[in-house]
Simulated scan of single mutants.
Amino acid sequence: MNQVKWPLLIYAILAAASIIGIGIAISAKSIFGAIVSILAVVIVMGMGFKTKRKMRKNGEI
Rank of each mutant, 00 (worst) to 15 (best):
R56W: 05
A40C: 05
V44C: 08
V41K: 00
A34W: 00
P7R: 07
L14Q: 05
W6P: 08
G21F: 02
M45Y: 13
I19V: 13
Y11R: 11
A34H: 00
V4R: 13
Y11I: 04
L14T: 09
G23K: 02
I24N: 02
P7A: 06
V42E: 11
K54P: 06
V42L: 13
I22H: 01
E60I: 09
I35M: 06
A12P: 06
I24A: 07
K54N: 12
I10A: 12
T51I: 04
A17G: 11
S30G: 04
R53C: 07
R53I: 11
G59D: 10
A17L: 09
I31Y: 08
Q3E: 15
K54H: 09
A40K: 03
T51L: 07
P7Y: 10
I13W: 14
L14N: 10
N58Y: 11
I13M: 14
I13H: 14
S18F: 03
A25E: 03
I19M: 07
M47V: 09
L9F: 15
V36P: 00
K5I: 11
I20S: 04
A16I: 02
I31N: 04
G21L: 02
V36W: 01
M45A: 15
K52E: 14
I19G: 02
L14V: 06
V4I: 15
N58P: 05
I35W: 08
S18K: 02
A40I: 00
G21H: 02
G48L: 04
A15N: 07
G33D: 00
P7V: 02
G21E: 00
L9V: 15
I13F: 15
A28Q: 08
S30N: 03
A40N: 08
G46T: 08
S27Q: 04
K52W: 12
S37G: 01
G59Y: 08
A28G: 02
A34P: 01
S30T: 05
E60R: 02
A16P: 03
